[in-house]
Computed example of a mutant assay.
Amino acid sequence: MAIDFIDLKAQQARLRPQIDSAIAAVLDHGQYILGPEVKQFESELARFGQAEHVLGCANGTDALLLPMMAWEMPRGAAVFCPSFTYCATVEVIALLGGVPIYVDIDRDTYNMCPDGLSKAIEGVKAEGKYTPWGVITVDLFGQSADYDRLAPIAREHGLKLIADSAQAFGTTLNGKQPLDYADVATTSFFPAKPLGCYGDGGAVLTNNAEHLRIMRSVHMHGSGRDKYDNVRVGLNSRLDSIQAAILLQKLSIFEEEITLRNKIAQRYIDGLKSNTLRVPSVLKGVISTWAQFTIEVPDPDSFGAAMREKGIPTARYYPKPVHKQTAYQDHPIGAGGLANTEDAMTKVIALPMHPYLDEDTQDMIIETAKSTL
């Protein structure tokens, strides 16, 4: 029996008639770019995400770029971010001429460590080489960062706070979405995300109408009132109508899928606890969307190879954090160091996770993982 690491086919089978109908409606009206589905999706996503405004865009990377461009982030500004993440979080800072300052993670949740952030900010201020400007947190593996502690630190130092929820849209902390704590929240609709489309897509969530207005200009080549008078440098970053139509159908069952993901995650946690295998920790008050189910084992490469031999796929996030990657290895490491990041990278490996993982298959994964160890 073939096991999918993320089974997109099961969800598609459930929604196929609705998705086919939604795509057909776009083909019928022919408004392939910024059609009515985009506006409807932005409205419904805002409602789900407890946001006043949503701007759909081309991908999750652009979702990070848009607010930073709208704020006109100065070149050379220091932006604090984790290294234990996908490169896009750091990439956008470098693209705009900023200086990524790497901050360590909390060893239990893999999200940005508040104490590490404080040390990194104080270190940059003491050195005086760069001007602190912003913080990009990452809600890694589906779990909200510790915004109760991180947000006050950003406010104390007058820094913009961007919640990168590309892996975790739908996560909450004490019933609040990341946007409740941040200046903006962003997400990705890459197909493998908990809420994914069938191509590329992304969105920015904001409660600031003026910021939304500028971002809308930026995402349309810096457009102004006159079609041929662009008033700022911008991007071509629009969410197309077909992807919005697909996402509308997926959003209709997203809350139920989050519940299913949590049920599956709890079965994993209950079944895998052992002295040689570490299961994920969830911060008190957090509901995770479980984009990945990441465990820790002494030798993840050997463990993964053994699991694959038995027909069970695994994936490693992230064996080489961003600060060790060729394009980004020269950026500064914050004053607190990256001890937790460098420890976690040697142990993490992810097991299959999606809302349609049946109990028999999951039990087989659990028993195989335990016997492999």
Rank of each mutant, 00 (worst) to 15 (best):
residue 354 H to C: 02
residue 150 L to C: 06
residue 324 K to W: 06
residue 12 Q to V: 05
residue 174 N to P: 04
residue 355 P to W: 10
residue 263 K to L: 14
residue 274 S to H: 08
residue 84 F to R: 06
residue 117 L to T: 09
residue 155 R to N: 03
residue 352 P to W: 13
residue 9 K to N: 14
residue 370 K to H: 05
residue 278 R to N: 00
residue 349 I to H: 08
residue 6 I to C: 04
residue 173 L to D: 02
residue 155 R to T: 08
residue 239 L to R: 06
residue 347 K to H: 15
residue 86 Y to R: 10
residue 197 C to G: 15
residue 202 G to A: 03
residue 70 A to T: 09
residue 355 P to M: 02
residue 364 M to P: 07
residue 341 T to V: 13
residue 146 D to C: 09
residue 206 T to M: 11
residue 169 F to P: 09
residue 331 H to R: 06
residue 127 E to I: 04
residue 137 T to A: 02
residue 21 S to I: 00
residue 202 G to V: 07
residue 371 S to I: 03
residue 223 S to W: 10
residue 360 D to M: 09
residue 350 A to W: 01
residue 264 I to K: 02
residue 297 V to Y: 11
residue 289 T to P: 07
residue 211 H to D: 05
residue 247 L to H: 11
residue 369 A to C: 12
residue 200 D to H: 13
residue 286 V to M: 09
residue 129 K to I: 08
residue 362 Q to I: 01
residue 76 G to I: 12
residue 310 K to R: 15
residue 317 Y to R: 02
residue 104 D to F: 05
residue 55 L to R: 02
residue 366 I to T: 04
residue 353 M to R: 00
residue 8 L to E: 14
residue 285 G to T: 05
residue 359 E to R: 14
residue 322 V to H: 10
residue 179 L to K: 01
residue 296 E to Q: 13
residue 283 L to H: 07
residue 106 D to R: 09
residue 29 H to L: 04
residue 81 C to P: 12
residue 125 K to R: 14
residue 82 P to K: 07
residue 311 G to P: 05
residue 346 T to F: 02
residue 371 S to L: 11
residue 33 I to T: 15
residue 85 T to G: 07
residue 247 L to C: 08
residue 119 K to N: 01
residue 189 F to M: 10
residue 35 G to L: 07
residue 338 L to S: 05
residue 291 A to C: 13
residue 136 I to H: 11
residue 68 M to Q: 11
residue 45 L to I: 07
residue 314 T to N: 03
residue 33 I to P: 04
residue 151 A to V: 05
residue 63 A to K: 06
residue 173 L to Q: 13
residue 368 T to I: 00
residue 367 E to I: 00
residue 170 G to L: 11
residue 137 T to R: 08
residue 138 V to M: 01
residue 287 I to C: 07
residue 299 D to T: 12
residue 143 Q to S: 14
residue 60 G to K: 07
residue 38 V to C: 12
residue 205 L to F: 15
residue 306 A to M: 13
residue 14 R to Q: 11
residue 18 Q to A: 07
residue 169 F to T: 10
residue 90 V to M: 03
residue 102 Y to W: 02
residue 105 I to E: 07
residue 372 T to M: 06
residue 113 C to P: 02
residue 324 K to E: 15
residue 314 T to I: 03
residue 158 G to S: 06
residue 342 E to F: 12
residue 212 L to A: 07
residue 165 S to M: 06
residue 147 Y to S: 05
residue 113 C to W: 01
residue 73 M to V: 10
residue 364 M to C: 04
residue 87 C to E: 15
residue 253 I to V: 15
residue 196 G to P: 03
residue 119 K to G: 10
residue 232 R to K: 11
residue 313 P to A: 13
residue 85 T to A: 12
residue 234 G to K: 08
residue 70 A to Y: 12
residue 79 V to L: 10
residue 240 D to T: 10
residue 43 S to N: 08
residue 17 P to T: 01
residue 194 P to M: 06
residue 115 D to K: 15
residue 103 V to Q: 13
residue 176 K to I: 04
residue 100 P to S: 00
residue 139 D to W: 01
residue 290 W to V: 03
residue 234 G to C: 09
residue 371 S to Y: 10
residue 181 Y to A: 03
residue 61 T to K: 15
residue 133 W to M: 01
residue 348 V to K: 11
residue 56 G to H: 04
residue 339 A to I: 03
residue 314 T to K: 06
residue 228 Y to R: 13
residue 297 V to Q: 10
residue 218 V to H: 06
residue 244 A to V: 06
residue 94 A to T: 15
residue 356 Y to L: 00
residue 175 G to H: 09
residue 70 A to F: 11
residue 152 P to D: 00
residue 250 K to Q: 13
residue 128 G to I: 09
residue 123 G to T: 08
residue 312 I to G: 09
